[in-house]
């Protein structure tokens, strides 16, 4: 009995390791791959592996193994692996959201009706792959949907580096629209500079401004377009620090504030304010002249409430913030 249990834990351990390895592999293979999508790929690998092991183990004539022979077992393995993945980067919300969605998708499939466990697993794998594929395609869908919001001769303000925003702007530019982009510097990690470089490489006219310049520049801007780390249940977003400020400035100036976000970033969180965000520790980057008794608060992201957001461009379509909760409720109810 003891031996079996130990063995079980061991196998789960290897499964978790596999998940984490797959996750890192997926990320390093292609820098375009989002955290959530990498997690989805890793979890699909877990189901696959579990299946292979089942076949191999049967060959070895071992009676009882850790490999799931019931769907409950499969879900258990997946949950464990998802937790292991989240331990890799515990503060990443989109990773968490991606894992949750995957579990939800795989466990609520009609695979549950199939009697044969192998068929059911095959179906789960298929769904996993399909989910990964859908998620990979999401960015292009958003680019196509969102580029119609950009009009010619308009000025777009964006904050930090977002791959989906970049793709959207590329798409609009390649369809022949003339527009210019204002990018914030994105302190402290300077992601705005990355964005500016990439836009410049595409020959899109780009202007770089200080983060603190947002309100100053707002009256020259026609629309604000940002990405999101996560979209929360009430339709608000969690994004790089400074987004909230930009949204407030945009609201004050009556400029539309659009968000481009893939649907795998929809997270089951309901923050009521900035204090409700999952904590995140990161190295401090302040000047050397800091007085010894001064406190430093250095968050890396903030929460933008739904009333500041005009529309969310997602791969599910263009949604109002109110639509997000509708989508999440439909899935989880």
């Amino acid at each position: 009995m003891h031996v079996t249990e130990g063995f079980e834990a061991n196998t789960q351990g290897t499964l978790n390791e596999l998940a984490v390895r797959e996750f890192h592999d997926a990320l390093s293979r292609d820098e375009e791959v989002a955290f959530a999508v990498a997690a989805i790929m890793a979890l699909t690998a877990v189901i696959k592996r579990s299946r292979q092991a089942a076949a191999g183990v049967r060959g070895c004539m071992l009676r009882r193994t850790a490999d799931a022979t019931t769907l409950m077992g499969v879900s258990k393995e997946l949950e464990d692996a998802a937790q292991a993945l989240q331990r890799v980067n515990p503060t990443n919300i989109s990773l968490k959201a991606g894992c949750e969605l995957f579990l939800r998708y795989t466990t609520r499939t009609s695979a549950l009706e199939l009697k044969d466990i192998e068929t059911a697993k095959a179906r789960l794998i298929e769904r996993g792959l399909h989910f990964a594929e859908t998620s990979t395609r999401a960015r292009q869908t958003i680019a196509e949907l969102g580029s119609r919001f950009i009009r010619s001769n308009c000025t777009v303000l964006t904050h930090g580096y977002s791959r989906v925003v970049l793709r959207l702007l590329q798409q609009a530019f390649s369809s022949g629209l003339q527009f210019s982009v204002i990018v914030t510097e994105g302190r402290p990690d300077g992601t705005g500079i990355t964005m500016a470089k990439k836009l410049d490489a595409e020959n899109i006219p780009v202007t770089l401004v200080l983060d603190s310049c947002v309100a100053y520049i707002m009256d020259r801007v026609d629309m604000v377009l940002t990405g999101a780390d996560a979209v929360v249940e009430n339709g608000g977003i969690i994004n790089k620090l400074g987004t909230y400020g930009i949204a407030l400035a945009a609201q004050a100036a009556s400029k539309p504030f659009y968000v481009a976000a893939e649907s795998y970033k929809f997270a089951r969180l309901y923050p009521l304010g900035q204090a409700d965000l999952p904590e995140e520790r990161k190295p401090l980057d302040v000047g050397p002249m800091l007085p010894p008794r001064a406190n430093v608060i250095n968050p890396s992201r903030d929460y933008t409430p739904p009333q500041c957001i005009s529309l969310l461009v997602t791969d599910l379509g263009v949604l109002t913030p109110a639509a997000v909760s509708d989508e999440l409720i439909q899935l989880y109810l």
């Binding site: 998708y105 499939t109 989910f131 599910l316 379509g317």
Partner: peptide
């Protein structure tokens, strides 16, 4: 209902299967 979070995967794959 059209593409939605709740049927994102049901479109296409079910038919394929």
């Amino acid at each position: 209902r059209g593409p939605s979070l709740s049927n994102l995967l049901d479109v296409g794959i079910d038919q394929a299967i």
